[in-house]
Write a protein that binds this DNA or RNA. Structure first.
Length: 283
DNA sequence: TCATCACCGCTATGAGGGAT
DNA sequence: ATCCCTCATAGCGGTGATGA
């Protein structure tokens, strides 16, 4: 919700709208010698309320869109890529799932390494031999050899796993390069991982996620996002001003054609917006 | 070229809930 | 009770992509 929030002291109050609107309407009506009927005032009030609601709704939509933009910048490999809102949501979900898998994997590896360190660095060979003597278990040399063999196996497994990861990643990158416009919503180089199961062995399915540079430049993205929002707002105001100008032109023409007939719908009664209300109040 | 579709933004409206 | 805000939804029009 904080994506596009104006400071509350800068949001014009309803009273402000009422006052400025009444001033403008009253001024125009007095210029045209038209009495301001109660019905018109009611209509005006309704219209003002509607405009405020529209403005609020617009701001809400902008905040939602800012959220989507924010999500998009976090997604890997989406810079400049066109993504629908649905695709952004889907890809975000996929991305979070992939990150969770990666985390699980790394934790498992971490625990494994900790075990190795404890076993082979925690106690000195002398002490281990003494312990083995005390317990009267087999020959120390045989045990040592067995452990070395075990470590060798583990390392071999890890190496094989690493090779698998590499080949999977290369394969995926080739696929991505070979197909210019894949229909699937997920285009970032994420190895698709199987759905999580309770019995899943953590290191049998490996997720390779290439982090986007945008992840490291989130601050820049945020600033850019703010800029975008401002640019959008300016564009919105410009469009509204264009519409208003043309409306004014029409109104002027109408006045020239029949001076007695002054349109009640003033220049400030366009469908836009809070900013315009301020403009009108300043005029 | 044109019809169709998907996506998007905007407006209007109403419901629900918190504040006064 | 009333007001205000937030949210959801429907409808409409604009726009770009796509296939016949």
């Amino acid at each position: 919700m904080e994506y596009f929030m104006m400071p509350t002291d800068k949001i014009p109050s309803l009273q402000h709208f009422k006052k400025t609107e009444k001033d403008v309407i009253g001024g125009l009506c007095s210029l045209a010698n038209i009495p301001l009927s109660p019905e018109t005032a009611q209509d005006q009030e309704r219209r003002i309320r509607r405009e405020i609601a529209n403005s609020n709704e617009r701001r809400r939509m902008q905040s939602i869109n800012a959220g989507f933009q924010s999500l998009k910048t976090v997604l890997p490999h989406t810079d400049g890529e066109k993504l629908s809102k649905a695709a952004i949501l889907q890809q975000t979900s996929d991305y979070i799932f992939a990150l969770e898998q990666e985390k699980t994997q790394l934790l498992a590896q971490n625990n494994q390494l900790k075990r190795f360190i404890q076993e082979f660095s925690g106690s000195s060979p002398k002490r281990r031999r003494a312990e083995e003597k005390d317990e009267g278990i087999g020959s120390p040399d045989t045990l040592e050899e067995e452990k070395v063999e075990e470590v060798r196996r583990e390392m071999l497994e890890l190496r094989q796993q690493l090779d698998k990861e590499r080949s999977a990643r290369l394969q995926l990158e080739e696929q991505v390069l070979a197909s210019p416009a894949p229909p699937a919503p997920t285009r970032h180089p994420t190895v698709i991982v199987p759905a999580p199961t309770l019995t899943q062995q953590p290191h049998h399915h490996v997720t390779v996620v290439t982090m986007s540079p945008s992840v490291h430049t989130s601050t820049v993205s945020t600033s850019r996002q703010n800029l975008d929002t401002i640019v959008q707002a300016i564009q919105h105001i410009e469009r509204a001003q264009e519409r208003r100008a043309s409306a004014e032109e029409e109104q002027r023409r109408a006045v020239i054609v029949s001076p007695a007939h002054v349109a009640m719908d003033t220049a400030c009664s366009d469908t836009d917006t809070d900013t315009e209300a301020e403009d009108c109040s300043m005029n």
